[in-house]
Write a protein that binds this DNA or RNA. Structure first.
Length: 562
RNA sequence: GCGCUUGUAGCUCAGUGGAUAGAGCGCUACCCUGCGGAGGUAGAGGCCGUGGGUUCGAGUCCCGCCAAGCGCGCCA
């Protein structure tokens, strides 16, 4: 339970008590909104419930506010609950109670901020899932940051989270990849062949071909040397995809991302007990009469379910489309693995696919609200004035690993994360490279290093937070820092509920700022006053816990020295 | 043309229908006899794209318009 939840319960009880007393007419109580007022004189929390009740209750909002405020005693965590015009009830947290939270935060340690709202429900976050046909591009970095941090946040909120990468190893792009691979292989063998016009011209394909050549037995190498571009050997393609997956794993590992599962699209077509997931899923649609044949192809009749058009599932060539794979894949997610909630993190270029997939999921008998597709707008990159075009075909491609090598993992993550998924972001590599003190990453990490420095210094000089009287922490800067720390659990709740991890970097900056102000205003280690020193040292330890947690949720390091 | 997203300070961006719209960077002026100055304080800088509407109350919700990005394939 967060402070906000506790308050909401108090407010609801008070409103109901007022109705029971006859102080207010009996009307339905809407959902309680507890907000953080922007002005400090309005307290720490406020509710607008009186204004929301005014119409139904046919009463003056301020009178309602009085009736509610009277029934919420200023005790425990609250030092005040007061009505305010035009119809708010403002709440103030108690100084002493706040001070006591320092001990609680310290004790929570790595678990600080953890919630139980997820109730152990199983949620899958699938992100990046770029085709295994080349290295990850800089743009994939945004999906990686959003997906991995969202997963961490959900975990903190009490969900049972699985991070997944879908390896598209069964579609048209894989075929193109296979043809390119054969071409490169044959070139290595001295044959004069061209890589296909629609193939992947990158040099990495030569390395993949070399590696396959070098690790092959003579027998197999001979067979490969006689392969044709039209019919790439299955083993060679599979091995090529494996090598690409390894490379992708390395790339994304540079950003500090690890997955729980790498799901192979191909596995949807493997038969188990005589039938594949793909066949089962399509049969289910067929049974519902959602599959229709026309123009020689098989279509999903999504227009019957409100879509503006139907979509092809099996081409007239007999080959399934990516959409068919995706239907089977989501059948697998919901009906085989039985995730309660599935979140797919996609780039804006996949937007057009959202609606029909949700429709398909619905047709499979799954409540589409269990599938959330988080679209992030594309990132544009520039080096100073020069705009960098991103395309797998152009030579001027920026790779994810280049970004990480240039600006560092922590900065890359922080940058990618700090804008809402809905807004386009501009990443100036020039600026990111030369960043020093203007980089907010350092501001936040510096705060952590500073705290660590004080704590180390304290140990050397025999200061201890042991048995500290935290009730001494009444200075406004101390109280502000504690307030800020206590916002982390509520922020985790917000981010988990709305799938908005971008609040974390902003919060981390605010927390760091609160610490820097405290540091400037309050001397921690003072030989003249050991008891205040002990209390402030305890506060530092709590601040370190909170800051380290925020950083670790973002997948960033919490340096002790800089 | 249709769909999705966006438009907030010079720049990059926050902003759960609430009370006087914020941060960082940049700019101006300050603060070091003390624990890490990669810090702190103060200031300038806003018709929240635009026109309507809903509401006690709109940057936030709805509609139109303008502008930008992405998509609209039997690619993924």
């Amino acid at each position: 339970m967060t402070i906000r939840d506790d308050l909401a319960a108090l407010i609801r009880n008070a409103a109901e008590a007022a109705m029971a007393d006859g102080a207010l007419p009996q009307v339905p109580v809407p959902e309680i909104v507890v907000e953080n007022p922007s002005r400090p004189e309005h307290g720490d929390y406020a509710t607008n419930l009186p204004m929301r009740l005014a119409r139904a209750a046919r009463a003056n909002p301020l009178d309602i506010a009085k009736a509610i405020a009277e029934r919420i005693p200023a005790e425990g965590m609250l030092s005040a609950s007061e009505p305010a015009p035009p119809g708010f009830v403002n709440f103030r947290l108690d100084t002493k109670w706040l001070a006591e939270q320092v001990a609680a935060i310290k004790q929570s340690g790595d678990a600080f901020g953890n919630l139980t709202i997820g109730a152990g429900k199983r949620v899958q976050v699938e992100f990046v899932s770029a085709n295994p046909t080349g290295p990850l591009t800089a743009g994939n970095g945004r999906g990686a940051a959003i997906g991995s941090v969202l997963a961490s946040v959900l975990q903190a909120a009490g969900y049972d989270v699985q991070r997944e990468y879908l390896v598209n190893d069964a579609g048209t792009q894989t075929e193109v990849f296979g043809r390119t691979l054969v071409a490169r292989y044959l070139q290595l063998a001295g044959k004069s062949v061209e890589i296909p016009a629609d193939g992947y011209p990158g040099e990495y394909m030569i390395d993949v071909a070399k590696r396959i050549r070098d690790e092959s037995t003579r027998e197999r190498a001979d067979a490969y040397a006689n392969a044709t571009i039209e019919e790439p050997p299955r083993e060679m393609v599979l091995r090529g995809v494996d090598i690409m997956v390894e490379m992708i794993r390395d790339d994304i590992g540079k950003l500090g991302v690890e997955y729980d599962a790498w799901f192979r699209e191909r596995s949807l077509y493997e038969t188990n007990d005589g039938t594949s997931l793909y066949e089962t899923a399509l049969q289910k649609l067929r049974d519902q009469h959602y599959l229709v044949e026309k123009e020689g192809a098989l279509w999903f009749a999504s227009s019957e379910l409100g879509e503006d058009k139907d979509n092809v599932v099996i081409r007239s060539t007999g080959k399934q489309t990516y959409f068919a794979s995706d239907i089977a894949y989501h059948y697998e997610k919901f009906l085989a693995r039985k995730f309660d909630r599935v979140i797919n993190v996609w780039g804006a270029d996949h937007q057009g696919h959202v609606s029909r997939l949700k429709t398909a999921v619905q047709a499979l008998g799954v409540d589409p609200s269990r599938l959330e597709i988080l679209i992030y707008q594309l990132v544009s990159f520039r080096r100073g004035e020069e705009v960098v075009r991103l395309s797998k075909r152009s030579g001027n491609i920026v790779l994810m690993r280049d970004i990480v090598d240039e600006v560092g993992r922590d900065a890359a993550r922080f940058f990618f994360l700090s804008r809402s998924a809905d807004s386009q972001m501009e990443f100036d590599l020039e600026l990111a490279k030369k960043q020093s003190s203007e980089n907010p990453v350092y501001y936040v990490q510096y705060a952590h290093a500073r705290i660590a420095g004080i704590i180390a210094n304290a140990a050397e000089r025999s200061f201890s937070a042991e048995g500290a009287d935290v009730s001494l922490l009444a200075h406004p800067a101390e109280q502000a820092l504690i307030r800020k720390m206590l916002q982390l659990p509520e922020l985790i709740q917000l981010m988990a509920e709305r799938s908005e991890p971008h609040h974390l970097p902003h919060y981390a900056q605010e927390l760091a700022n609160a610490f820097h102000i405290f540091y400037t205003e309050c001397r921690v280690l003072d030989e003249e006053d050991k008891s205040v020193s002990a209390a402030r040292l305890a506060l530092c330890e709590a601040a370190r816990v909170a800051l380290a947690r925020a950083l670790s949720l973002m997948g960033m390091s919490a340096p002790v020295k800089m």
